[in-house]
């Protein structure tokens, strides 16, 4: 029982970080129907910016997270402006290939010596480690910090989308570009804002990831990016609560498989579940055409 609880805590930590990445995929897909494959690499840049903030320049941790988020928001907006905006009305496949190109560019550019460099870096913990024993389960302060930061950001996102003008505009644009434009909404600005927001969340995810699994390198974004994308599809791509649900599920499936069956089967079972869910509900768990789409 304790063991099960321990594994669920481990899965929660993983799932919450996936959620921050998955939100970026799902928001961008919701608004311009583009699978932004560069998103995993924005996550990587976020991890590096966070690392530079708290490990190299010794800023307070939360300030480092905010700086990483701002940095990646700017990066996200720039990527959208340079790479995707010119292709807004081109065939969807062109934008998809461009996204893969941007992804490779970020990975290999970051590997250059004058950028982040090609080497693995060990990330020092920004806090002294504390272990709590609660009901026979070990919980670390890192896990608590990850959980708190993610929940705060999700609450902030919920507020932004449902209680602000920008959020309303985002919902409108995701519903219908042309109608939104006729209503006087600046579609380009709203799309930029979506990219900025999604990238900022990925940066927060990256920084937390670097703290939880203390090693970073320029290709670290590929696997988490892929897993988070899968989680977004599992939950119903384009749907925000779906992305969070899918991510939490992915985290649990991975950890429970490794914990109770075998670590060899972890990815096999995680992706089999995805296929099964999509067979039964092709739009994903919560995916359905409706006003919740952003």
């Amino acid at each position: 029982m304790h063991y099960l609880l321990q594994q669920i805590v481990n899965g929660l930590q993983l799932g919450l970080i996936y959620a921050l990445i998955a939100l970026g995929y799902t928001m961008v897909y919701g608004i311009i129907k583009l699978i932004n494959f560069a998103h995993g690499d924005v996550f990587m840049v976020g991890a590096f910016l966070g690392y530079y903030g708290f490990a190299v320049y010794h800023l307070p941790f939360y300030l480092a997270v905010v700086i990483a988020m701002i940095g990646c928001a700017i990066l996200g907006v720039t990527i959208e402006f340079l790479a995707y905006r010119p292709l807004r009305y081109a065939p969807r496949i062109a934008a998809l290939i461009t996204a893969i190109g941007v992804s490779l560019f970020l990975e290999y550019f970051s590997s250059l010596k004058f950028a982040f460099g090609p080497d693995y870096r060990t990330v020092p913990r920004p806090f002294t480690e504390i272990h709590w024993q609660i009901a026979g389960t070990t919980i670390t302060n890192t896990q608590v910090i990850v959980a708190v930061v993610v929940v705060v950001l999700l609450a902030f996102l919920q507020f932004l989308i449902y209680h602000t003008k920008v959020g309303k505009a985002m919902r409108a644009v995701s519903f219908d570009h042309d109608a939104a434009r006729l209503m006087g909404i600046n579609v380009n600005t709203v799309i930029s804002a979506t990219f900025g927001l999604g990238s900022a969340l990925a940066a927060a995810g990256g920084t937390l990831y670097a703290v939880a699994y203390p090693q970073i390198w320029p290709f670290m974004g590929i696997m988490p990016g892929l897993k988070a994308f899968t989680a977004a599809v599992l939950g119903g791509i384009g749907n925000i609560p779906g992305a969070v649900l899918g991510s939490l599920l992915m985290g649990q499936i991975e950890v429970l498989t490794a914990g109770f069956i075998s670590s060899n089967f972890r990815d096999v079972i995680a992706f089999s579940v995805l296929i099964l869910v999509l067979l039964v509900r092709p739009a994903g768990l919560l995916g359905q055409a409706g006003p919740e789409k952003v």
Partner: peptide, 14 residues
């Protein structure tokens, strides 16, 4: 490419 070993290590801890 794995970076999360928490599940395996929980097994070892047990």
């Amino acid at each position: 490419n794995d970076t999360d070993f928490s599940a395996i290590l929980a097994k070892v801890a047990k």
